[in-house]
Design a binder for these strands. Structure first.
Length: 345
DNA sequence: GTTCTCACA
DNA sequence: TGTGAGAA
């Protein structure tokens, strides 16, 4: 139990700021002494630390309020939630720093090899860094903190309507990834664990990432052996070279193309050498257009199935090629397909 | 010491 | 999104 001055000294922020946060509803649980002095309990301290972390990550007060909203959790899980949130945001910050360090590295290299650094290069590299920051920034805006808006049941219902082959798609994904017992896999956008659960059944150690605390709660309930973390695909909260394989179903649709490429870079980072990736989603957009294309392609002697999807996702395919992945495409249903990518090194 | 309010950037 | 100053 702390008074405001001690707390401000411990956390390194002004008493004024603490009052400011409380005033804006970020610290709803602070108690008062008889003399009206604020008295901060353990929960408040953890919460405030989280607020500071979220602020440093560039999140607005309003968004923080939403992020900290899920009060439905028992006290024991609430602290865990705060810490997970902090880990996830630190991962995005860490990636940004890493990216900027790499950019600087490139500039130094350019300067060394070319004696002079063309102004265009400076702009180019700076823009690149700025752009990456914005991508991650935009994603933060998209964090679905209003988690109770849609329940999982509703979500599955929508999915089932849209994709009668949802279940089959998951089964196929679990088959294609060809996991062997003892391997460690990651499911990005794990939801309630429908896909990861199938893999766990075959003796694989699974981890999962999802934005939604509510989803992870249900996943934990259904599959207690799956380790889960709050996070997103653009800043995967795991270290480098950590997984034998990564699976992700019905998640890429939520990303624009640039975000998809960034997600691939992140997946590449957390995969071990010779790691595997299986992405399942709506990979085919317009059947009629594709039929025309197929005639065209077969005239050129290209392999049907591969070229088919290659046309749909040229940027992704190009990324795979540039980063030493071989790919194989499968059609599960007219609108749903999956790509298996295996790293050659 | 701490609270609150008004003003200011 | 915070901060300073002054009164209580």
């Amino acid at each position: 139990m702390l008074k405001i001055n001690e707390l401000s000294k411990r956390l390194g922020i002004s008493t004024r700021t603490i009052r400011f946060y409380e005033q804006h509803g970020l610290l709803p649980s602070v108690q008062r002494e008889h003399n009206q002095y604020r008295i901060f309990g353990e929960e408040d301290i953890w919460r405030l630390q989280t607020i500071i972390a979220l602020r440093e990550a560039g999140m607005a007060i309003k968004e923080i309020k939403q992020a900290l909203e899920p009060q439905g959790l028992p006290d024991s899980q609430r602290l865990r939630y705060y810490l997970e949130l902090q880990r996830s945001l630190l991962t995005t910050q860490w990636l940004e720093m890493k990216r900027m360090a790499e950019t600087t590295e490139q500039m130094i290299h350019l300067l060394q090899t070319q004696q002079t650094l063309p102004i265009q290069e400076i702009y180019h590299l700076a823009d690149q860094a700025k752009h990456l920051r914005e991508l991650r920034q935009n994603w933060q805006d998209q964090w679905n903190f209003d988690q109770r808006a849609t329940t999982h049941d509703q979500d599955v219902h929508i999915r089932r309507e849209e994709y009668p082959y949802y279940e089959q798609a998951l089964t196929s994904t679990a088959t294609f990834i060809h996991a062997t017992a003892g391997e460690h896999g990651l499911d990005l956008g794990i939801g309630t664990g429908n896909l990861a659960g199938k893999l766990v059944a075959s003796g694989v150690h699974m981890s999962g990432v999802d934005q939604s605390q509510e989803m992870l709660k249900q996943c934990k309930h259904k599959f207690p052996m799956i380790e889960t973390r709050i996070g997103n695909m653009l800043a995967i909260p795991y270290p480098d070279d950590h997984f034998h394989f990564v699976v992700s179903s019905f998640t890429f649709r939520h990303l624009n193309q640039q975000q998809q490429l960034l997600a691939l870079t992140e997946i590449h980072r957390v995969l071990k050498p010779h790691g595997r990736l299986c992405l399942t989603d709506r990979l085919i957009v317009d059947q009629a257009v594709v039929e025309d294309l197929l005639i065209d392609l077969s005239a050129n002697g290209l392999e049907r199935q591969s070229a088919y999807h290659q046309w749909q996702h040229p940027a992704l395919q190009q990324w795979f090629e540039e980063h030493g992945y071989i790919t194989k495409y499968h059609t599960i249903e007219q609108k749903v397909g999956c790509v298996l990518a295996v790293s050659l090194h």
